[in-house]
Amino acid sequence: MSATTRVTWDGDAVIRGTHEAAARGIRLGVEHLLQVSRRRVPIEEGTLERSGTATVDATALVGHVSYDTPYAVEQHENMRIRHDPGRTAKYLEIPAAEEARVIGEIIAAQVRRSMR
Rank of each mutant, 00 (worst) to 15 (best):
V73G: 00
V73E: 11
V73A: 10
V73T: 09
V73M: 04
E74K: 12
E74G: 02
E74C: 02
E74R: 15
E74S: 07
Q75K: 01
Q75A: 00
H76D: 03
H76K: 07
E77R: 11
E77Y: 04
E77M: 03
E77V: 06
E77W: 04
N78K: 14
N78D: 15
N78P: 05
N78S: 14
N78W: 11
N78T: 12
M79L: 14
M79N: 09
M79C: 03
R80T: 15
R80P: 01
R80F: 14
R80L: 11
I81D: 05
I81T: 11
I81K: 13
R82H: 11
R82A: 12
R82K: 13
R82T: 15
R82F: 12
H83V: 06
H83F: 14
P85K: 08
P85V: 07
P85M: 07
P85N: 03
P85F: 12
G86Y: 14
G86Q: 12
G86W: 10
G86H: 12
R87T: 12
R87F: 13
T88Y: 09
T88K: 11
T88V: 08
A89Q: 03
A89C: 06
Y91K: 02
Y91R: 01
Y91C: 02
Y91D: 01
L92Y: 09
L92C: 06
E93I: 08
E93Y: 13
E93H: 13
I94N: 09
I94E: 11
P95Y: 11
P95A: 08
A96H: 14
A96N: 10
A96F: 15
E98F: 02
E98G: 05
E99P: 00
A100D: 11
A100E: 13
A100G: 05
R101L: 05
R101W: 04
V102W: 00
V102A: 02
I103G: 02
G104C: 01
G104T: 01
G104A: 01
G104W: 00
I106C: 05
I106A: 04
I106P: 03
I106Q: 03
I106M: 04
I106W: 08
I107W: 01
I107Q: 01
I107T: 03
A108W: 10
A108V: 09
A108S: 14
A108N: 09
A108T: 14
A109F: 03
A109L: 02
Q110Y: 09
Q110M: 10
Q110I: 04
Q110R: 13
Q110L: 04
Q110H: 11
Q110V: 06
V111R: 02
V111G: 05
V111L: 03
V111S: 01
V111D: 06
V111T: 03
V111M: 04
R112P: 01
R112C: 03
S114Y: 09
S114T: 05
S114E: 10
S114D: 07
